[in-house]
Design a protein around this nucleic acid. Structure first.
Lengths: 134, 134
DNA sequence: TTCATTGCAAAAGTTTTGCACGTGC
DNA sequence: GCACGTGCAAAACTTTTGCAATGAA
């Protein structure tokens, strides 16, 4: 995804395409590792040493607020972010800490009829294949 | 659930039935409102003014560690706890903040074949019926 | 005696906030 | 000029940790 496409995407959402926002979003799109704030920050400042961590917080909040990013809160440690906004589950390996995406069918629910559901998060945890077998 | 039953439950899990633990667990069983630590603390000290918040933290961690409670981490604010350990989803109303339980069928998944799944959490959010209609 | 538990105070860690400074429309 | 975004420092907040005291088996 090039800068022009990102700029257009931001425009549709009513966000200005500042260098900070663009860099943060671009990193998320190109590195789908569900990074936390610290990871995003330490990576983007490699190319942009002047960016502040507060701004990274701001950008991530703005971007998830408008639906371009999904905050992944699979544990209470820190927030991670995902540029894949389609519905899917997240699995966290309790040993290596990695987050894996997985497809899951949309569940039928009983008990929240009539509720307005805006967000669905499915979080599994346990041991990934690699950690299980050693 | 009376104290004797709780004591037996704890014994099966290898936990000593201290007054603190018993009071904390009893509150969770009798008040299924998905309380956070502060709520549990402020309620149990009404009957037991000497209990400390650190101990409430300890109890909640021990009880969820042995499977008697489920930690509900539906947002990054604070951990809530649920004495209903059967599989079900949690819905958080973004307006009133209430947590609702709901039944949901166990989803089929693709992408984590062979993984050892130890915990499944399904978190929905949006507006509850009451908040939606006003 | 021994060992888990309690509880106070302090620490740790992430996220938020206040506020001044720039910048683009 | 005005609204928005940035960024530094400080604050806020939940949760954890160190450690001495307590209590039960």
């Amino acid at each position: 995804m090039n800068t022009a496409e990102i700029k257009e995407l931001f425009r549709q959402k009513g966000l200005k395409a500042t260098p900070q926002r663009t860099a943060v979003y671009k990193f998320l799109v190109e590195n789908r590792v569900h990074p936390d704030v610290e990871t995003v920050y330490s990576q983007v400042i490699k190319s942009n040493p002047s960016f502040s961590k507060t701004t990274v917080y701001n950008c991530l909040k703005d971007l998830s607020g408008c639906g371009l990013l999904i905050p992944v809160m699979i544990d209470n440690e820190k927030i991670r972010y995902d540029a894949d906004t389609s519905f899917h589950g997240h699995f966290k390996c309790e040993k290596c800490g990695s987050i894996f995406d997985f497809k899951c069918v949309d569940s039928k629910t009983v008990g929240i009829e009539g509720f307005e559901i805006k967000q669905k998060d499915v979080y599994y945890s346990g041991l990934c294949n690699h950690c299980k077998n050693k």
